[in-house]
Nucleic acid binder design. Sequence first.
DNA 1: GCCGTTTTCGGCCCGACTGTTTTCAGTCG
Length: 574
Amino acid sequence: MDNREIARLLSETADLMEIAGEDGFRIRSYRNAAAVLEGYPEQVSAIIKDPSKKVTDIPGIGKGIASALEEIEQRGSFERRDQMLELYPPTALELLKIQGLGPKSIRTLFEHYRVSTIDGLERICREHKLRELPRMGEKLEEKVLRSIAQYRQRAGRFLLSFAYGVAEELSAYLLELKGVERVTPAGSLRRGKETVGDLDLLATGPGAEAAIEKFAAHPKVHEVLGKGPNKASVKFGLEGLQVDLRALPDESYGAALQYFTGSKEHNINLRSRAQKMGLTLSEYSLARVGSKEVVASATEEDIYKALGLHWIPPELRENQGEIEAAERNELPHLVDLKHIRGDLHMHTTESDGRATLDEMAEAARELGYEYIAITDHSRRVTVAHGLDARRLSQQIAETDRLNEKLDGITVLKGVEVDILADGKLDLPDTILSRLDIVVASVHSHFDFTAAAQTERIIRAMDNRHLSILGHPTGRLIGEREPYALDLDRVIAAARERGCFLEINSQPERLDLNDIHVQMAKDNGVKLAISTDAHSTNSLSYMRFGIDQARRGRLTRSDVINTRPLAELRKLLKR
DNA sequence: GCCGTTTTCGGCCCGACTGTTTTCAGTCG
């Protein structure tokens, strides 16, 4: 079992322990261990097998969890988890996803009504029986019903980052076979959608058919939905992501890649275009109607070219005018990961990050960045141990010292300052004025009306120290809806004031989304693509922000952190 | 359950808000 799956077992157990009402600190230990393992560079299973190493050397892993890890390695579970699952069915964990319900309420619900499923919960609410429980009432019933509806809408979708991880793991696994030359993800993953329903992989080479067998035999495949000589479809991992693998001859690789990348609407449009030209487009080839002579099939470029089009980047294939733009050679030159010169939003151990200032700077230097900005939380976010003016002032001094000894990268002084309920910023101007960059974000009062929330944010932007509005809609994919906001007004206000908007690359945030990104661009507002990293590992989230930016049609010049440092500094002055 | 130590037990980021209550538990971040 890999670290990610182990982390999942630990954090699920922690959730169940919370429902069972166990000691909070013990629960925190399990959560902490899960978080550490998720980002740990070395596989736990390898450490266990290596007699010269100890899992207890991993910070956050002591004797207790070490023995749980050994048990997991041997039999895929551990005693405490089994005990918990005897008390509460695993479906109870799903209830934690419903806003307004926490572990205590779930326990009460289970004790009174034996309810542990979403369907059961919905019935209890509809029958007005939730309000009969202690400390619950009518408003909670309504809130829960709303939340259940939202939960159902998003069920069955997986975060882009998760699908990327599975695609990489399976590609590496299949490429071990001699004769497998290429394994390429298609579908919504290739289009960079923020969530994907299933994963499509294409394999080519003389050994591609053997890859189908190897694929179905992967240790993490727990159900084979179908398998033939050229295609297999499976449920993968504990999470049950559906993965389809297709073996293809080299000569039809381009046609297949085009076909399976979609979107469906893009392909329909493309096929009707082919028809008008006396051609027919399928997953095997672009061919002449009648003679069946193949016109193009080996590469996507050949196919688009034969249809009189420039090649269209996958992120644009949504039938939103991209085919017409390709015909007129008016496709935007999309921003690319390699254009990014720095990262403008990240945290350190001073607030809720896991790495120190020095470690973050070093990791960024290894990524080849020219600059980064350190933006720890401000004091209002007490849970994150936010900085007050005094501590921020110390960090400024420390950053100055670091810059003197650092070679090849510049660390910009910054903060992620909280936008308070009234639109004021959480730190005085006297300290903000000493910074290179101020990211300002909303972390509270998500329930304001759209008018009030919009006013609040625009008032924050009135502060001339504000450089970038962080994660502007506050959504968490699969967990929390964006707050009500008049984004048109926010964008207009940003343009008038010379503020920038953020694309937050955290896989569950990714806001602004593609539509909003394009709105900003169309209204002349530039964006920053930032990772909001809380560890050195998560600096790599940049790719997800880039995907979102590309879907929003951004070019290099639309993105401020593609600029050299001197230019960026000029842009940051208001 | 982990960590760190004045080495064997005490501390572990906690404040704001909400809906339910009559004084606060539970949720959220």
